[in-house]
Design a protein around this nucleic acid. Structure first.
Length: 283
DNA sequence: CGCATTTCCTGGTAGC
DNA sequence: TGCTACCAGGAAATGC
């Protein structure tokens, strides 16, 4: 599969972090004056939305791919972009799910959440209470924090025999790794996507950890310098896309060994890997 | 309980 | 050209 013109940029950790940095100066310390649910959507994804009205946004934080906005009344606004979620002050023409009215101190007092494919979430919980959100509740360590060490990563990989690719996507071993970066990190470190997590060779665990960190950091840098408007679907190729070695390159020669890269399905997700470089460990 | 599979949803696109 | 069928994805729900 190739990146075709108009293809959506899937929000992974680097793009969500870019969004967070944009939202912070806009939203921090504003009061929410009104909250309107625009479209008929599964209620659970927009639970308790009216509760945010009257509260002040204390911060704009990120946990994995989730945006967490603590409110001064003890609640927390959670935003997940899913595949197509866009947070914007400019009213979109279609697919608006939420409209917030904010403190009226300039022209940016309206917030719209647009979500074409309805995979996103926009809900209010009591601060830190993620029981209704199993992925967030069981979220692993932040990859860009000092807590993401070799020993921590090794310990969590020992806990599961699930395929390493699937386990990474579960967000349990480390937060924020999506389909693209999972494929990239596994290609980089020559690990077969189906390798049981607890069978990843010990010597490769530090390499995988390092690859995840490096790729995410590099991608954050690329997003920050290349995309002028993170809110829009950008059909042009972003800088990080040109760095991809595996994702989207099935049918092309591996840049390391020249063997044709394969496309497969792992855990129900499109998976790109090199049949020569990425071998399953003998067992 | 743990792991695997299915579901949600819509626009783009391949194929006829 | 117009129609149908299918695919992509993160997280939750369901199945085994």
């Amino acid at each position: 599969m190739r990146f075709t013109k108009g293809r959506l940029a899937i929000p992974e950790l680097p793009e969500v972090e870019t969004v967070r940095r944009e939202l912070e100066p806009w939203l921090k310390d504003r009061h929410i004056l009104g909250a309107e649910l625009i479209d008929a959507v599964p209620h659970v994804k927009y639970a308790n939305l009216p509760n945010c009205v009257g509260q002040r946004i204390e911060a704009v934080n990120r946990r994995g791919k989730f945006l967490l906005l603590p409110l001064d009344g003890g609640d927390e606004l959670i935003i997940h972009l899913g595949m197509t979620g866009i947070v914007t002050a400019k009213k979109p023409e279609k697919h608006i799910r939420v409209h917030l009215e904010l403190t009226d101190n300039d022209t940016s007092n309206h917030l719209y959440f647009q979500d074409t494919r309805r995979f996103g979430r926009f809900l209010v919980v009591k601060q830190g209470e993620y029981k209704s959100m199993p992925t967030l509740h069981a979220m692993g360590v932040e990859p860009l924090s000092d807590d993401f060490t070799d020993s921590v990563f090794k310990a969590v990989l020992q806990k599961s025999s699930t395929a390493i690719k699937t386990y990474l996507l579960s967000q349990k071993p480390v937060a924020g790794v999506g389909n693209i970066y999972a494929d990239e990190a596994l290609w980089q470190t020559k690990i077969h996507p189906l390798t049981p997590s607890n069978k990843v060779p010990a010597k490769k665990i530090p390499l995988l950890r390092e690859a995840i960190v490096d790729i995410l950091k590099k991608s954050i840098d690329a997003q920050g310098t290349t995309l002028n408007d993170y809110r829009t679907v950008n059909g042009e190729v972003g800088a990080y896309i040109s760095e991809l070695k595996a994702y989207g390159h099935a049918g092309e020669p591996c840049q390391r060994c020249g063997v044709i890269l394969e496309k497969s399905v792992v855990g129900g997700r499109g998976t790109h890997s090199c049949p020569y470089c990425q071998k399953l460990p003998k067992s």
